[in-house]
């Protein structure tokens, strides 16, 4: 446990010293994963709501598919996005490989199924409670989906958090499409992998601790806001 102790000490020193490189890495991690989460929510939440409320052929297949895709290995997603963005790939002309945009894209692909599947669950429960009322008021299914998305906004924060948690913690996808380039695409997880490679376990551990604290803090804030909102709106 001496490694853990020294990890905590080192974490404090690095953060307090305002180590610019460390802060850049932390900020890039946040920027990439938060953006990926927002995009995944913009796509996954309406999709999940339509899967819950809609009646169309292939809906069940899609539900199973999205549930299964929650377990997609990041490396596979990374590889797919790499092949897509590579100069030899279909989107190669944009030159996006080894940029934060590529990392955002990969994480978005990775977590959209998670957000969609969790949203579907939340909306399905709300739909159970409200479908008679919404039918009675003459809301179309599309309208009903939108209404339920808004009405379950506090519960849906959990779906967003789950996606964010997976995004910021994954290393396989961003390593492949970002390339772990110093100062450009190096995020917390790829730095941890690199420092582990170099055998600098205390530094790797320190970064791990910072990552955990960060994720905890964000979870804490969201849960506090959610609790406050639920007390406010019932």
């Amino acid at each position: 446990m001496t490694e853990l102790d020294s990890g905590f000490t080192l974490a404090r020193q690095l953060l307090l010293a305002g180590d610019a490189r460390l802060w850049n890495i932390v900020l890039l991690s946040l920027r990439v994963s938060l953006t990926a989460t927002v995009l995944a929510c913009l796509i996954g939440m309406p999709l999940g709501a339509l899967l819950a409320v809609g009646r169309f052929p292939g809906r069940r297949v899609l539900v199973v598919l999205f549930n299964a895709m929650m377990g997609l290995p990041p490396v596979v997603v990374g590889l797919l996005v790499y092949l897509l963005l590579s100069r030899a790939g279909p989107l190669g002309a944009f030159g996006l490989l080894f940029t934060p945009t590529a990392m955002i894209l990969a994480q978005m692909v990775l977590i959209t199924p998670i957000v969609a599947a969790l949203t579907r669950q939340v909306i399905a429960d709300a739909w159970q409670e409200m479908h008679e009322l919404l039918h009675s008021l003459g809301a179309s299914r599309l309208r009903a989906a939108a209404t339920l998305l808004w009405d379950t906004r506090f519960s849906l924060s959990t779906a967003a958090l789950a996606g964010f948690g997976r995004a910021i913690a994954e290393v396989g996808a961003v390593m492949i499409v970002g390339g772990n380039i110093d100062g450009v695409t190096r995020v917390m997880t790829t730095t941890i992998a690199l420092e582990t490679s170099k055998g600098d376990l205390p530094l790797a551990l320190t970064l791990g601790l910072i990552l955990i604290v960060l994720v905890l803090a964000i979870n804490g804030v969201i849960f506090a806001v959610r609790g406050w909102s639920e007390r406010r709106w019932g």
Binding site: E129, M130, E132, L133, S136, L137, G138, A139, R143, T147, W150, D151, R153, F154, W233, G234
Partner: peptide, 26 residues
């Protein structure tokens, strides 16, 4: 027609917001 259920199903908005929601659809 309009229907009122045994258990009132209300949206997470204000009382007025709920009444407006029903109207807004039409």
């Amino acid at each position: 027609q309009a229907m009122v259920f045994q258990k009132p199903v209300l949206l997470r908005t204000t009382a007025l917001g709920n009444v407006i929601y029903g109207l807004k659809l039409k």
